[in-house]
Design a protein around this nucleic acid. Structure first.
Length: 420
DNA sequence: AATTTCACG
DNA sequence: ACGTACGTGAAATTA
């Protein structure tokens, strides 16, 4: 096996990435998985009961409003209730199996059409939390360690990111009030210990700035400016001090959208504005940051030439569809051609950081326990907190030298939630 | 096994 | 005319 594959890595120029990143990372991941994460399952048990009673009330309300006791968890039955029995009219295209779509995106727009819609949204939100996190997590606690031990997958994500399964620790809720209750269940491994969470600030946008050599972005990052406000100032042609909240949040959406190849249609959807306005914003963005526009074009051109996208460390993603005659298929590959170098380079960087952090923690009483794409979580002995914070922050910020600084925010607390 | 939905970065 | 922002994993239903 090695006899055939090693020469192939050599021939393809992937030996350094293999030897210096993926192989050393393997033992880091093994340590993280073996160490595991401590859960406060009493907290989860209490929260589960609270969710259950809310869900029962919501289910009864929904069935009363529907006029019949259908299965609220069934998208098919829900669609029939909403769009036939209750006569809600929506100009939406059906799913590929001919059902009415009932996704959050669809239902949110129908909130005013019928009181049942809001109830369904709330039911779905709580049901998700209970069935995906609150109920399964305690069952995954290993009886001999008393902790959950995820498995990090090194080779499933096309961009070079890690993935996490059984349980997936990379999609633990945080965006909603009740979701945050679940984060509170992630706690340090013992008394006199704390959780340190260190995350990269806008790492993908910084990478895009460095890779594109877009001077406007580079200078803003070098000056340590509020990047979304600085973007808004340029896009809307106003002084930074006069940027409104709305303008900043629109600029933030564009900054994100650009990295993924979002168009006017998608931006209009995200911001809830007319497509014409979205187009004006994107045009102004491109005019102000022409280096970024040139970069995205160069990504597509290069992928068309080489048949693949490449990250800062030489990781590759084949993109055969970039040659497709089907515009939908080809456009998808073109967005991958732009996004993969960025997302994949961010993965490269945090992998380098993890190897550094792991090495630096050798012999100490603190362990790396989680990676969530742009964040590392460390279970820290309190007496080591200052040292570990400094060491983790520096390892991450110095993981790779770019023309823009990499900035890390590090906080600690008695739960994963408090560490943010 | 495939589909739909939704949690995260 | 078409579809429309990238990358994952898990649960429940549908077929």
């Amino acid at each position: 096996m090695a006899d055939t594959l090693l020469p192939e890595l050599e021939k393809e120029g992937l030996m350094d990435l293999f030897r210096d990143v993926e192989m050393p990372l393997l033992s880091v991941l093994l340590d993280m998985e073996m160490t595991g994460v401590t859960l406060d399952d009493g907290h989860l048990t209490r929260f589960s009961a609270a969710l259950q009673s809310q869900l029962e009330v919501l289910q009864a309300d929904i069935q009363r409003l529907a006029g019949s006791p259908f299965n609220v968890d069934s998208p098919k039955q829900l669609g029939d209730i909403l769009f036939e029995h209750l006569g809600i009219t929506a100009k939406v295209k059906k799913t590929k199996t001919g059902q009415y779509p009932t996704s959050e995106a669809v239902l949110s727009k129908l909130k005013d059409a019928h009181p049942i819609v809001g109830k369904v949204l709330e039911y779905r939100k709580l049901k998700k939390l209970r069935s995906t996190y609150v109920e399964p997590l305690p069952a995954l606690v290993n009886p001999s360690t008393g902790r959950v031990h995820t498995t990090y997958m090194q080779v499933v994500a096309a961009t070079g990111r890690l993935s996490s399964k059984d349980p997936n620790l990379q999609n633990i809720p945080i965006r909603t009030e009740q979701g945050r209750e679940i984060r509170k269940a992630f706690i340090p491994s013992g008394p006199n210990r704390t959780l340190l969470a260190a995350d990269y600030s806008q790492v993908e946008l910084r990478i895009a700035a460095a890779m594109s050599q877009e001077q406007g972005l580079i200078q803003a990052f070098q000056a340590g400016e509020d990047i979304h406000a600085a973007t808004a100032a340029k896009v809307f042609g106003v002084p930074v001090e006069e940027v409104t909240r709305d303008q900043r949040s629109q600029a933030k959406a564009v900054n994100f959208g650009i990295l993924y190849g979002q168009g006017a249609f998608g931006l209009a959807e995200t911001l809830g504005i007319p497509r014409k306005e979205a187009k004006q914003i994107i045009d102004a963005y491109h005019a102000q940051f022409s280096g970024l526009q040139a970069f995205t074009k160069a990504c597509v051109d290069r992928a068309r030439e080489e048949g693949r996208a490449t990250t800062l460390l030489g990781r590759r993603r084949p993109l055969p569809d970039i040659q497709s005659n089907n515009a939908v298929v080809r456009s998808f590959a073109e967005r991958n051609a732009v996004n993969t170098p960025i997302q994949g380079s961010a993965a490269d960087i945090i992998k380098l950081a993890m190897i550094k952090v792991h090495k630096a923690l050798e012999g100490m009483d603190s362990q790396l326990i989680m990676q969530v794409h742009d964040e590392l979580v460390v279970d820290v002995a309190k007496e080591e907190l200052e040292t570990v914070t400094r060491l983790v922050t520096q390892s991450m910020e110095d993981a790779l030298k770019l023309e823009v600084p990499l900035v890390v925010d590090a906080q600690h607390g008695a739960t994963w939630l408090e560490a943010h």
